[in-house]
Design a protein around this nucleic acid. Structure first.
Lengths: 240, 240
DNA sequence: CGACTTCTTGAGGAACGTCAACCGCAGTGG
DNA sequence: CCACTGCGGTTGACGTTCCTCAAGAAGTCG
């Protein structure tokens, strides 16, 4: 499960540069860090916390069907608030690390009482919840009716917005792929083989290049956007 | 778009009986209603608000792909908080009514300032956001790797938990289907024909009965649960 | 009744999942 | 150093599945 230590104002503070944490006041930020514990994780680690902030790496909510099919319902990257608490206590899957990661587990007791003295913290949490909800709606859109090629194009644009995968200067169409092919497959609801074939197809059409295993270069962003938005539907069964 | 009127403490208060609104104090509840406007909607109406509480009917976030494919990313029923606000302003689809519905559109300006005088309101909103997020994770699980039959079984159990579709006494395995087949299809990511065929298959296997068009009787809840949890995977391509 | 929408049923094909084999790479041990 | 092992990824063959298309049935509203 990895080392667990208590910090007071360590290097993890860097995550507070991300939206919406960057609008916290200094005292609030310090107080927040004081009531958190850092969890270092490697791939496959299950996290027992259900409330915290990701400071590095990638976490996911993993659920299994009875016959072993694996699903990644949600991905969390640097700066994301993880909040798996819910009123109805159902089985909701496990929080796992997909990469070497670090999670700031928050003290729920303290947080639930901090709204009055620290309204900015409460607001930041609400903004995170709202934004994550919007991301889940986007993701549902991707899952419901897109073909594998369209799903893959969508997820590439999703990764492009991740803070860790921000393009280097001058390479605003280079995307870093932060997770394994298997995880991409379990996230967009296809098999790893299909991910592989879809990537090769985009490459054959010169829409992307794959200089490294975890780097994808978008040669034609407008075309890729068209694909991501439904430009590759299933062909008709009755040809012209 | 339907009639819009301002109320002070009308019959809409009934929605406040649902969790988590039922833990609001009396003054908070009255204040909340005072800063809301009621929108009456019929099927197909687009709602211009992006923040409110559903008091009756069913709403959905509808998004279209460029070639016309329709997706229902999220469903909202009686008692649900609708909050489509997000930091990043992308196209995020339209809020539409699937049935004759009623929405309590909330005054965002007032709400954003009510946390201090009304901490119970702020808490209720956070609980709603968290619970809805959990529902979205469940839904993503359904979409990612389930077969149509499994998706349909899942969505039946989802509808079973809806307040409007609560079973009458003695009929705890009668589920009311609150939306059209087409909408079910666009929600679980299959075609209406497939929904129809899946229902007929469950009926053939005597797992369900369909006494009325919008009523489904679950004959064998354990078996249905097994199916919903992955009991009907795709068959192997290499038969024994 | 007639026009319309929604749902159902049927036929046929494209596509993606299943399976199997292979490749590349990293870690391990002799 | 190299053989061995295991894992992740890729490629190919093949078949089930679900989408497409079309037409008819059933329900709704004028």
């Amino acid at each position: 499960m990895g080392e667990i230590r208590r910090i007071y104002c360590g290097p993890e503070t860097a995550v507070l540069g991300h939206h919406p944490w960057n609008s916290l006041t200094e005292p609030s930020a310090i107080n927040l860090m004081n009531h958190a514990t850092v969890k270092d994780l490697t791939r496959g680690d299950t996290v027992d916390a259900d409330f915290g902030i990701v400071t590095s790496g990638v976490l996911a909510v993993e659920r299994m069907l009875s016959d072993g099919r694996r699903t990644l319902c949600a991905l969390f990257h640097e700066g994301d608030l993880v909040d798996l608490r819910r009123t109805m206590r159902d089985n909701q899957g496990r929080l796992v690390a997909l990469n070497p990661s670090r999670l700031l587990a928050l003290n729920e007791q303290w947080i639930s009482n901090c709204a009055a003295p620290h309204p900015d913290i409460a607001l930041a949490f609400v903004i995170q919840l709202r934004d994550y909800l919007a991301r889940m709606r986007d993701h549902a859109m991707d899952l419901v009716s897109k073909t594998p090629l369209e799903k893959l194009a969508s997820v590439l644009f999703e990764f492009r917005h991740w803070p860790e995968t921000m393009p280097e200067e001058g390479h605003h169409n280079m995307v870093r792929i932060p997770i394994q092919r298997t995880d991409i497959a379990d996230y967009i609801g296809v098999k790893p083989e299909t991910v592989s074939r879809a990537l090769r197809q985009l490459e054959r059409e010169s829409l992307i290049d794959i200089p490294q295993h975890d780097r994808i270069f978008l040669n034609d962003i407008p075309s890729m956007r068209r694909i991501a938005n439904g430009g590759r539907p299933r062909r008709s069964t009755r040809p012209a």
